[in-house]
Amino acid sequence: MKILVVDDEEDVQKLILRHFRQEIRNKEFEFCFASDGTEALDVLKAQPDISIIITDINMPKMDGLTLLTQINELRSERQAIVVSAYDDLKNIRTAMNNGAFDFVVKPIDLQDFTITLRKTISYIKAISEVQTRNTELTLANDVLRQANELKSQLLGIAAHDLRNPLQIVLGFSSLIIEATRNCSIKTLGDVEPAMQNFRQMGETIQGAAERMIHLIKELLDNAELESGKLALKKTHRNISEIAAAVIQQSQLQASRKNQRIFLSAEEYCIAHVDWSKMLEVIDNLLSNAIKYSPSDKNIWVDVRRIAEDGLPPRIQLSIRDEGQGLTDGDKEKLFGAFQRLSARPTGDESSIGLGLHIVKQLVELHGGTVRAESLGRNHGSTFIVELPASM
């Protein structure tokens, strides 16, 4: 540890060199000296690795207080110890306010001086260790960020490349289904059972392709969100109308499990949103309610404008189901990416654990919030989205 002693008394140099001769011999301490502040600044510029400055306050040319103000401009992590007369409390206080780490009084008590010096060294080492760890964490975070960006890029590329062949599979399966439906019984004759099998196989292929395309869409959406390149195209829209549109297109999915969807919506629930992205938010939440609820259950969708005293008005959308509910563990990781919760789809639906993660990011991009409420396992759950209302 390199230490600069600034004092205009020659005896101080001899005293320090004699007292710390063992530490100097062991290369634990290395001392250099200056007789005033001006000379000290020259030494500091020539030897930037000096970590501690021990300075007297009253010196010619440049005093210790002036020196302190200029030390911080050279290297902020240096620490200073001031030396002053016992009754010079005003200057000591000024020195501490100017950044001095500690002080010792004259006449110097060598034992107290040694304790103060070692305390300062310990502090510098602790600060250095923290800075080193912060640097290591910063580098590690950079590596993780780059790895995450690469992962998102690879997922995006893979999802994009998979989507086109799946669209072809979906198209041909639709043709198979349509062709078998158009065949008349007279034409079919004895081959009618075989044609029915073909139609069922076509419907199976179509269903599997649709599920895969939905999963790929989630991967592409997540990659776009994580890249930070998603640009919202906002207009003033009625959230009640968006919810009604989603319910209309979800009726077939719900009917397969004999589920009923009820909508309660106020007429004017206007918010400044991207129509397609808000459609995606509501679709994800409603699809989950259908997916994780057993057959013959109800789902309630509620849209209303809320205005409370002292708070800006907001639009609240809630989707409540009679499904499997949420455990405390589920709630902790609910909106994370690629998370699997305790609940499982009750039909043949599939999931990669991205839907709610995408919902949260899209809602927050709109300046809103999303949360979930549940009394626990098998008590259903309610997802609540709140958005700033248009004035």
Rank of each mutant, 00 (worst) to 15 (best):
Q167T: 15
G347I: 01
R21H: 10
L150E: 13
Q196Y: 02
P345Q: 12
I54T: 00
E373N: 07
Q249R: 15
S390G: 07
A147F: 09
G325W: 12
E9A: 11
E224D: 09
S374T: 07
A289P: 04
I384M: 00
L74I: 15
G355E: 05
L139F: 05
F383E: 01
L286D: 01
A389F: 08
H19I: 02
V6K: 11
E241T: 11
K45N: 13
I3W: 09
R211Q: 15
A158Y: 14
A85R: 08
K297H: 12
G228M: 13
D56V: 05
L317M: 08
N298F: 06
L74G: 00
S122L: 10
N98E: 08
S350V: 15
I71K: 03
V370W: 08
P294A: 12
L263S: 05
C32L: 14
I3R: 10
D56L: 06
L137T: 03
K217F: 07
S174M: 07
D161E: 15
A194W: 11
G202C: 07
I3N: 11
D348W: 08
L341V: 12
G347L: 13
S51H: 09
K45V: 00
D8L: 06
I176P: 00
L155A: 01
L220W: 04
F172C: 01
K90L: 08
S381P: 02
R199V: 02
V104Y: 05
I247Y: 06
S374H: 06
A343W: 05
G347M: 13
A265N: 09
L317W: 09
L175P: 00
D8F: 07
A147Q: 15
I16M: 03
A389H: 09
Q324L: 06
L326W: 04
M62Q: 13
I239D: 01
